[in-house]
């Protein structure tokens, strides 16, 4: 008894000190980190850098804002103007023709009809417009970057670590700098979405080009092909299926980010979910969530088959 007691008593201070070390930063006896080495103001530096960019890039961001906003509004208005029944029929037909699966056509028609029926049509079109614009921008920037990374080892050495950071950074973090640049609203949402959705477009383009068989590259060289000719005549055509897989990923990421971006003012289906969270309306939240799933499945399946078609 005595012995066990003793051991338990002696172990007590140990446990206490362990817990204290975890809970209390200023535990006596433990030197403060800041006393040895001053705290690095990494956050402040980043903030200063962003503020600097915000003020100095103002004309550019304003121009980007204007173009994106008007494009977005136009697209949204156009999509909205189309009769839902027509859109549903066209998407259903496209799903059937492209995938050659009747089931998917039926699913697309039934799913979109459900979305319409739940009163989420306008929100869906708004989300779709955001996804399309964000994807377009991500592809316009991403594919050239991917080509550069494939053609130059130096470009690759810069781009790839940046992509690693971009892809491990929590998606929410991109929302924060979007606001000072573009203010709350759709453009900020598009910006954050583009940043978030771009990596696959870059990676898959680079991968597709680098995967072109070495013997074909050698053959092209043997016939005196120039570097640009090689890209256009050999590498891009052979990389096309891989690049399209990348674009498909970009679309999917854009869709997921557009939902998150509802927090900074993107409306659409994400906006419905966000509203439901704030008001704890479980039913509405799930309805909007189901709408997102339906849109995602339609986009994904159709794009995948387009990729396969191109691959021959």
């Amino acid at each position: 008894m005595e012995v066990t007691n003793m051991t338990s008593v002696t172990s007590m201070p140990n446990q206490a000190s362990m817990a204290g070390w975890l809970n209390m930063p200023d535990m006596p006896g433990m030197p403060d980190m800041a006393a040895i080495f001053p705290r690095i103001p990494l956050g402040q530096w980043l903030e200063a850098a962003i503020e600097f960019l915000v003020t100095h890039l103002a004309p550019a961001t304003r121009a980007f804002s204007a173009v994106t906003e008007s494009g977005l509004n136009l697209l949204e208005a156009g999509l909205d103007a189309l009769p839902p029944a027509l859109v549903i029929a066209v998407v259903g037909l496209a799903a059937w023709r492209v995938t050659r699966k009747v089931g998917l056509g039926v699913f697309a028609v039934a799913g979109l009809a459900l979305v319409w029926n739940m009163g989420l049509w306008q929100a869906t079109m708004s989300t779709l417009a955001l996804v399309l614009v964000a994807t377009l921008l991500a592809v316009l920037v991403g594919i050239p970057l991917g080509i550069a990374a494939a053609m130059s080892d130096r470009a690759r050495a810069v781009v790839m670590p940046v992509l690693d950071v971009m892809q491990t950074m929590p998606a929410f973090v991109y929302l924060i700098p979007a606001i000072p640049f573009f203010g709350l609203g759709k453009v900020a949402a598009v910006f954050a979405t583009v940043i978030f959705a771009m990596p696959p477009a870059i990676r898959f383009t680079c991968l597709g080009i680098r995967q072109v068989p070495a013997e074909l590259v050698e053959c092209a060289e043997a016939f005196g092909t120039g570097r640009f000719q090689r890209l256009v005549k050999l590498e891009l055509p052979l990389a096309a299926p891989t690049m399209l897989a990348g674009v498909n990923q970009t679309v999917m990421l854009a869709l997921s980010m557009v939902v998150i971006a509802a927090m900074i003012g993107a409306r659409g289906l994400g906006g419905e979910v966000w509203k439901a969270i704030q008001r704890l309306e479980m039913g509405n939240g799930f309805e909007a969530g189901i709408g997102i799933v339906i849109v995602a499945i339609c986009l994904d399946r159709i794009l995948q088959h387009v990729g396969k078609r191109v691959g021959g």
């Binding site: 013997e215 074909l216 050698e218 053959c219 060289e221 043997a222 016939f223 005196g224 092909t225 120039g226």
Partner: peptide, 16 residues
């Protein structure tokens, strides 16, 4: 490059 275009034709083992 010009020499390869004008002077050489090459045939490969795995056709390429």
């Amino acid at each position: 490059r010009a020499l390869r275009q004008r002077t050489f034709g090459m045939v490969f083992q795995n056709f390429a």
